[in-house]
């Protein structure tokens, strides 16, 4: 009898252990290829060239002449780019969700920019934005520019270039946000919206009172993913204006790691910038979740 109980207990314990065993390889993988480099980077950011503990790496980053411009430029790109992308993506998702004739082709066309890597997007737009590029040619063809008229898209102030970066980034990223929002919209039961109309609501009332609240968790996911990606923008910037002309945070990491790797300060600067970007990304994500009420709901659910 006792033996049967023991066997039963062992079987139960075995059953409980199996999921952990299955997760173990993934856990090892993460420790080796994710946690280890992250911890290593963190340690390096507090280590001097002589191997001693130091805060000097951070002092160097904060006093770097490009730090504040990089922080400012990144913030502007994040705020304007994410806002623009969200509203356009939502509009497109709502439009495609109405399933009008040809909406499938429209969906396909809007998805094309998402398939392009950032470097190709940069090259494509750079070719268009040069003085004799395809954008000016198109504008001339459409009669918007007079024959021989030119717009110098890539000349002028940093603000003009920032606006261009926001537009180019939005062009590439809108499809990915749109597809997440569209998936969310298609998961909303038709009956809930129909009930809204039955009770006298018009399209905008139903959208504001029913659709958007039901879509809020999808919106959270989309915005949080986009927020993180927007903070990490760099490749499009360097394809169009190169390093250091319009500094952004991640571009600074790449600059010290790839462009001037042999400077004695480069490893310290690169690791300092890396940790600062990680902290900013984490704070931005938490702040957004807090503002959007994600934590409040969790507490209510508990």
């Amino acid at each position: 009898m006792a033996l049967a109980i023991n066997t039963e207990r062992r079987r139960k314990i075995g059953k409980q252990i199996v999921p952990y065993l299955l997760v173990l390889p993934v856990l090892f993988y993460y420790i080796a290829f994710w946690a280890r480099p992250v911890v290593q980077q963190l340690v390096q950011s507090f280590t001097s060239l002589e191997g001693q503990f130091t805060l000097n790496n951070y002092i160097m980053v904060f006093t770097d002449l490009n730090f504040l411009p990089a922080l400012r430029n990144t913030s502007i790109i994040v705020v304007f780019s994410v806002t623009l992308e969200f509203f356009i993506a939502l509009l497109l998702a709502l439009l495609i969700n109405r399933k009008f004739p040809g909406s499938g082709i429209f969906l396909f066309l809007t998805m094309i920019p998402m398939a392009l890597p950032a470097v190709a997007v940069g090259a494509l737009w750079k070719t268009g934005l040069t003085t004799n590029g395809w954008i000016n040619s198109l504008l001339t063809y459409l009669g918007i520019l007079t024959e021989g008229g030119k717009i110098y898209w890539l000349a002028g102030s940093i603000w003009k270039l920032l606006a261009l970066m926001i537009i180019i980034d939005a062009w590439q990223v809108i499809p990915s946000i749109m597809i997440i929002l569209l998936a969310g919209l298609q998961n909303i039961p038709k009956e809930t919206e129909e009930a809204g109309y039955v009770f006298g609501g018009n399209y905008f009332t139903v959208l504001r009172k029913i659709t958007l609240p039901l879509l809020s968790s999808t919106i959270q996911t989309a915005v949080i993913l986009r927020l993180i990606a927007a903070i990490q923008i760099w490749l499009i910037v360097i394809v169009i204006v190169g390093f250091s002309r319009m500094p952004v945070l991640v571009e600074r990491i790449v600059y010290y790691h790839e462009e001037v790797p042999r400077l004695t300060i480069s490893p310290a600067m690169a690791s300092g910038y890396t940790i600062i970007v990680t902290i900013i990304v984490s704070i931005a994500a938490l702040a957004y979740l807090w503002v959007s009420g994600a934590f409040r709901r969790k507490r209510k659910e508990v």
């Binding site: 750079k126 934005l129 040069t130 003085t131 004799n132 110098y152 898209w153 890539l154 000349a155 169009i240 204006v241 190169g242 002309r245």
Partner: peptide, 15 residues
């Protein structure tokens, strides 16, 4: 005018 975005003069001379 767009000199700050030039990384190689070849294309600009050809165009």
């Amino acid at each position: 005018p767009t000199i700050l975005s030039v990384d190689n003069c070849v294309d600009f001379l050809m165009r």
